[in-house]
Design a protein around this nucleic acid. Structure first.
Lengths: 241, 241
DNA sequence: CGAGAGTTTGATAGTACTCAAATTCAGTGG
DNA sequence: CCACTGAATTTGAGTACTATCAAACTCTCG
């Protein structure tokens, strides 16, 4: 299973005391299954909750005036969703399940209480959020300044990094080509052509939706991909009280 | 003067006790003047500090493999700079002065102590940071899904909103057309053409670097601009202890 | 087997880029 | 005070990348 609880995620950053773990676990007391294409949050809807994604794949997106969609972020198990709404009365984005998913909803005031009682968790939360912001920075740079092929290559690598790959190394992105396009600022048609090109150049192989990375080095170069996760450093954080 | 201290900024979100104000003020004890084009933080440089921008205009950017630049964010007086590095050992971005500026540097461990002692400030800090993230979301959507003209229009409106305009309503963006291009994912040449087009359509007027918004309604529509600042809501925050 | 979502391919159009050069402007030194 | 300089802006011509439109194809699921 690819279930992940939030405490596990935070624990990858800093060691947690048993008490802290228990406090975080209280955010995840309720579980709610979400069907494919169902939304847990809608643009302009009144905001009260946040969510931890327990299982599945979800995404945040915005719809523009002309009806086009920009996917801002994909959410993977263990991710906190809806933090961006912290300062707003209404949601700025829609959060939808790309595949069958399970989320744990909680009131944002619970988050406030948790942080008030456990400031270290608050700092860890901020750090976690900054990691996802850096990801957003990378995405902006890709969309603003790299070719269509590079953007598709980079997104494939990102999806692979966060999806449990099969033992042969292949993985199922779980997203349609249209979704890849909406995340990278391209049309579905052009995404398809870029995938074919990557395949023709033997950087990837495709078999009915499954994708294998054939030449990781070249694919990473093609996508100007940087793995930030290797460089996380929270050594400056004060130790547990 | 366009000086702004950080406490003022936070105070626009939530009321602060005198003690909280004093604690925040301690982050700003040192001031450092920064010349135009000077950097306070470089990509891949070891990270230890964060900054509050006291005066001037600065920006964060990344340089890609081919040497092109993506501006991620402009910083205005009162903004906290460098928070994105919170979880990393090395900087992911460069922060440079667009105009003469003054910053207040402090160690990130000071930030950790501040938040540990004043959890409410921590929450406010997170909220503040989410506001800037929503801005980044908007930028991504603009770059990914809107026309060149729309992106330039949106950026002009953003710059105007955060720059003290003259009494005739005109303002000086303070950025070159090349910088506008690097922020919006366009070339300087094309930015120039879009400005001319906006001028020809009487949405803006230009006079030697100064820009006046002639038809705000149409410019906002052209840029699909949404003013998020009006919708900030922190009423759920617990009151001061 | 039929239906619908998703993918693939072809032909054409259009937006934005590249390259090159002229022009304006602010600052500097003679 | 003026020529000089480099940065920034402006304009033109040609090109390339990506979008659009349309249709065929494949796969899954009921």
């Amino acid at each position: 299973m690819s279930d992940h609880c939030f405490a596990d995620r935070i624990a990858t950053l800093i060691p947690l005391t048993a008490e802290e773990q228990a406090a975080i676990a209280r955010l995840e007391e309720r579980e709610r299954p979400i069907r494919r294409n169902a939304m847990v949050m809608r643009e302009n809807e009144r905001l009260t909750e946040m969510f931890v994604l327990k299982r599945g794949l979800m995404m945040s997106y915005m719809i523009l005036d002309d009806g086009s969609r920009q996917i801002l972020r994909f959410h993977f198990p263990g991710d906190l969703m809806g933090l961006a709404g912290l300062a707003f009365a209404k949601s700025q984005e829609t959060i939808m399940a790309v595949t069958e998913s399970v989320v744990c909803p909680f009131e944002r005031s619970h988050m406030a209480e948790l942080v008030a009682r456990h400031p270290r968790i608050g700092m860890a939360l901020m750090a976690l959020d900054q990691i996802s912001r850096v990801n957003l920075n990378d995405r902006l740079a890709a969309v603003g300044r790299t070719s269509a092929k590079a953007r598709v290559a980079a997104l494939l690598l990102e999806l692979r990094a966060r999806t449990a790959p099969a033992k042969d190394g292949s993985f199922t992105p779980g997203v349609t080509q249209e979704e890849i396009g909406d995340a990278t600022g391209l049309t579905a048609v052009h995404v398809n052509r870029m995938l074919r090109q990557l395949e023709d150049e033997k950087l990837i192989a495709r078999d009915n939706g499954r994708i294998s990375v054939v030449n990781e080095q070249r694919l990473m170069r093609a996508g100007q991909y940087i793995d930030r996760t290797a460089r996380v450093d929270l050594s400056w954080m004060p130790p547990a009280a």
